[in-house]
Computed example of a mutant assay.
Amino acid sequence: MNFKETALEAAIAGGNILKKQFGNIESIQAKAAHDIVSSADYASEKEIRRIIESAYPEHNVVGEETGDNNKVSEYSWIIDPLDGTSNFVTGNPYFSVSIALAFKNDVILGIVYNPILDEVYFAEKGKGSFLNDKRIFVSDERDLKNALLGSAYSPLEEKIKSGLKDVEKLSLKSRKVVINFSPALDLCNIARGRIHGLFDNGTRPEDHAAGSLILTEAGGRVQNYNSDSWDIKKIGIIASNGKLQSSIINVLKSDD
């Protein structure tokens, strides 16, 4: 199998596990005061890792729940087996499997799978973005007043406070801010033109690696929080259709 075939097989296998446990979760545990993990996270990641490590045993694999396999390789697979755990455990079907492949810290492939709607978002660097094999593009919205934005924030208490302040700022300047707690799907929904931006001070590489490539290949733009550049290893993301990036950043930087 090639990279795309492996990623697709792994994402669908993980998604099938999530579908089976959706509404029938075996266990939920606290990861931190404001963060949780479920049995579905672990089961999905175990199967995804099995498929990838069987196909590419020499590659590094980083999973949100079970960490790094510490292989010395220029290739790294970055996995979030269940992006949107809080939604999943409460019966909200807004969640996904996210898998990215990076070469020397540069994401070259990304797949985000929504198992409930059977939607596969996929991108390879330089080849565009697709939803179930149909090319997708960001919207042409240029006015922040008309924009629908996604948001979430870190489970760390100090970042919850600052994140909610940012939500207030942009809620007053945009049409609506929706807190979804599934940044991978939010990035894909910007890529397909359903929403226009995302700001989240707590995303980790597992959350945003695949979605960031899908968005940029669809014509969007990404950067880290409190930064003008983009590094998948850093925490936090500000993303948009590209036309609204400066407007979003200006509001976040304002003292109002």
Results as ranks from 00 to 15, higher is better:
Ser38Val: 05
Pro57Phe: 05
Trp77Asp: 00
Ile99Lys: 11
Ile99Gly: 06
Lys46Pro: 06
Tyr56His: 14
Thr66Tyr: 02
Ser96Met: 08
Ser54Cys: 03
Ala100Arg: 04
Asn70Thr: 12
Thr90Asp: 04
Trp77Tyr: 10
Thr66Asn: 12
Pro93Asp: 13
Val72Arg: 09
Asn69Cys: 04
Gly63Asp: 07
Val37Thr: 12
Gly63Val: 03
Lys104Leu: 12
Ile48Trp: 07
Asn87Phe: 08
Tyr42Ser: 14
Asp41Asn: 10
Ile51Gln: 11
Val97Gly: 02
Thr90Lys: 15
Glu53Leu: 14
Gly63Ile: 04
Gly63Cys: 06
Gly63His: 11
Asn92Phe: 08
Ser38Leu: 11
Ala43Met: 12
Ser76Asp: 05
Val97Glu: 00
Arg49Ala: 02
Glu53Ser: 15
Ala102His: 07
Ile36Arg: 02
Pro81Asp: 09
Pro57Gly: 08
Asn87Cys: 05
Asp41Met: 10
Thr66Leu: 11
Ile51Tyr: 06
Val89Gly: 05
Tyr94Pro: 02
Pro57Thr: 05
Ser98Gly: 10
Asn69Lys: 00
Val89Glu: 03
Ser98Phe: 08
Ser73Arg: 12
Ala55Ser: 14
Ala100Thr: 02
Ala102Tyr: 11
Gly63Asn: 00
Pro81Gly: 09
Ala43Ile: 02
Ala55Ile: 02
Asn92Gln: 04
Pro57Val: 03
Glu74Cys: 04
Arg50Tyr: 11
Ser54Ile: 00
